[in-house]
Amino acid sequence: MNDSVEKLLSICSNPLSPLEGVKDCSKFFSSPLSCELNTLLDRKNGCYGFESALHVFPYQTTHEEIGLADWNNKNLWISSYGDMAIGALYFAEDIFGGQFCLKSDGVYFFEPETAEFKKLTNTINEWCEMVLSDYQVITGYTLAHSWQKINGPIPSGYRLAPKIPFVAGGLYELDNLHICKSLELMKAAANIALQIRDTPNGSSVKIIVIN
């Protein structure tokens, strides 16, 4: 296994699901990187890192954790974005529900409130290296740590969501964060993304937030 993958996994939690069984992510998404994700999940089948700021989904669903197949089921949350979130395999998330995903040519970041994809690296090993070098920003660790010092550990299946959407000027500050189920966060963000989809940059827009 590549050094950066091994190093990242070594400082993360225990596996979230039993390791038994063959991991074949190509069943969900055809990409040369699927084999790299298989290798990562074969070494550690899902995990949390940096005080839960980073969440890597396990291959299969357990009674506490949702697995890759179910999280990538289009009817769960991806269809809430219309056609804006298709064409990727979502395998991990940051503390705010930002999705790390595979496309055919690399690892990308999917911003929930805008549905924008940003390419991060060409390989999963490079992604692991990036996370290790800048985890405070990439995973949201700083706010995750501060929030949990006050409120206690974040349960499985939950992330920190903004009370005022970030895209509407909400600040990355503790007072603007609340705990939210990951699925609810993604659906609420999809509602925002659809509303601003065709809005030119710099334009004013009225966003209707559905709780």
Rank of each mutant, 00 (worst) to 15 (best):
K187W: 06
G157P: 10
V167S: 08
D198K: 10
L183Y: 09
F166P: 00
A189S: 15
I164D: 06
I164Y: 08
A193L: 04
Y172S: 06
A161L: 12
H178A: 10
Q195R: 06
A168N: 12
A168P: 03
A188G: 12
A161T: 13
I179E: 08
M186D: 06
L171Y: 09
M186R: 14
M186Q: 15
Y172V: 02
P162G: 05
R159D: 02
H178D: 06
D175Q: 14
L194S: 06
N176G: 03
V167L: 11
Q195P: 05
R197I: 11
G170Y: 03
I196D: 07
E173M: 07
L194G: 01
K187F: 07
D198Q: 11
G157Y: 12
A168L: 12
N191D: 15
L194K: 12
C180W: 04
M186E: 07
D175G: 15
A189N: 07
R197D: 11
R197W: 14
A168C: 15
L171S: 10
H178N: 05
I192S: 00
C180N: 09
V167E: 07
F166N: 04
N191L: 09
P165W: 01
L174M: 08
L194C: 10
Q195E: 12
I179H: 02
G157W: 13
Y158Q: 11
A168T: 13
L174R: 02
I164E: 06
P162V: 02
V167R: 07
K163M: 14
E173F: 05
E173Y: 06
L194R: 12
P165M: 05
Q195H: 10
C180R: 08
R197A: 13
K163I: 15
A188T: 08
K181M: 10
H178Q: 13
A193R: 00
G157A: 12
Q195V: 07
A161G: 11
F166G: 05
L171F: 05
N176P: 05
G169A: 11
I179A: 07
Y158M: 14
V167P: 02
L185N: 00
A161C: 15
Y172A: 08
P165I: 03
L183C: 13
I192A: 02
E184M: 07
R197P: 07
A190E: 00
G169V: 13
D198I: 04
L174Q: 04
Y158E: 13
Y158G: 03
T199F: 10
I192H: 01
L160H: 01
L171T: 11
A193I: 03
E173T: 14
